[in-house]
Write a protein that binds this DNA or RNA. Structure first.
Length: 269
DNA sequence: CGCCAGGCGGGGG
DNA sequence: CCCCCGCCTGGC
C-alpha cells in the first residue's frame, strides 16, 4: 500500500514522543502496532507499507485529515507557531490503542525515551504473545488480562522500578471495568481525564497524552517539561497556568500545537 | 560520586 | 489548595 508524502515525514511522526514501538530501519521504520509488525519504507515519490489493511493504516496515520489546512490555521495564531510547524512539518498524530498508550505513558513518567522503549519491549517479550511475520519474530503488547493477576515482583524483569505497581493497578482496573477504556471514546476530554486519573501513576500529563494519542481528543494540551520550557522561553509566559493559556490560545487545535511545539523545543532548546 | 530524565503520590503547611 | 520531597533505573 502506498502513502502520499504530502505533509508526512516518518522521523517527525515517530520521533515526536507519541509512540515507543517504532524503530528506524534501512530506508524507513518498522513497528509493532495493533498486534502486527508493520514496516514503512520511503520511496522517492511516496511511502510504502507492507500492511495491506488500508482501513487500519488510514486511521492509524490520520490520513483523512487535511494537515496543510490545519498547519495554515495554526500559523495564523501567533508568531511562534510558524517556526515550530516548519520544524516538524511532517508530524501526524497517530491513533493508537488506548490500553497500550495508557501503560506506555505510565512508564514514561520521570523517565527518558531510550529506557521507556526498553521497558516496553521487555514487557512485551515477557508477557505478550509471540508472533512471526516473514520469518521475523515479534511480540504483541500484552492484554490487561495477561497482567492483572501478576504480583509486583513478577514484573521485576522489565526493570520499570516503582512504576510496576502502577502498571498492575492499570491492568486490574481495566480488566475489571473500573477504568472503562472503551467508554472514554464517547466521553468529553474532561470526563475521560477524570476516569483515567483513577489509575495510579496517571496524573494530568499522562492522562492528556492518552486522550490525545489514543482517543483523538485534539483539544487537550499535554504539558511536560519541554512544553514548559517552550512556554517560558518562547512565549514568555510567567506563572500563567499552561493549560489555561493553551486553551485560550490554541482552542480545539491545542493538541496539534503541542506536538509541533514539543518537536520544536526538543530540537531547539 | 551526584545529577538528571517527557511526573506522580503522599504528606505537611 | 499548594508546595515539596522521594522515587526505580540507567546514562553521563
Amino acid at each position: 500500500m502506498q502513502i502520499p508524502k504530502r505533509d508526512f515525514c516518518l522521523e517527525h511522526t515517530f520521533e515526536c514522543g507519541q509512540c515507543f514501538r517504532w524503530n528506524q530501519t534501512q530506508g524507513g521504520y518498522s513497528g509493532v502496532v495493533g498486534g502486527r509488525l508493520i514496516s514503512v519504507t520511503e520511496q522517492p515519490d511516496c511511502f510504502v507499507t507492507d500492511c495491506g489493511d488500508e482501513q487500519f493504516i488510514t486511521r492509524y496515520f490520520d490520513l483523512g485529515r487535511d494537515y496543510a489546512a490545519l498547519k495554515q490555521q495554526l500559523c495564523g495564531l501567533d508568531e511562534v507557531l510558524p517556526e515550530a510547524v516548519a520544524s516538524g512539518c511532517g508530524i501526524r498524530i497517530l491513533r493508537q490503542d488506548p490500553w497500550e498508550t495508557l501503560v506506555s505513558f505510565i512508564i514514561s513518567a520521570n523517565n527518558n525515551i531510550p529506557r521507556i522503549k526498553g521497558i516496553i519491549e521487555r514487557l512485551c517479550m515477557q508477557f505478550g504473545e509471540a508472533r512471526e511475520q516473514d520469518g521475523v519474530r515479534y511480540y504483541a503488547f500484552p492484554a490487561p488480562e495477561a497482567l492483572c493477576g501478576l504480583r509486583t515482583e513478577q514484573l521485576g524483569g522489565i526493570r520499570s522500578g516503582y512504576r510496576a505497581q502502577y502498571i498492575l493497578d492499570a491492568a486490574r482496573k481495566v480488566a475489571d471495568g473500573t477504568a472503562p477504556l472503551g467508554a472514554i471514546e464517547r466521553m468529553t476530554a474532561e470526563e475521560g481525564r477524570v476516569c483515567l486519573k483513577q489509575i495510579l501513576g496517571v496524573g494530568d500529563k499522562v492522562a492528556d497524552c492518552i486522550l490525545l494519542f489514543a482517543y483523538g481528543k485534539f483539544e487537550v494540551f499535554p504539558c511536560d517539561v519541554w512544553i514548559r520550557r517552550v512556554l517560558e522561553r518562547l512565549y514568555r509566559i510567567g506563572n500563567c497556568d499552561p493549560a489555561l493559556f493553551a486553551q485560550q490560545r490554541f482552542g480545539a487545535l491545542a493538541g496539534f500545537a503541542q506536538q509541533y511545539l514539543f518537536y520544536y523545543g526538543r530540537t531547539l532548546l
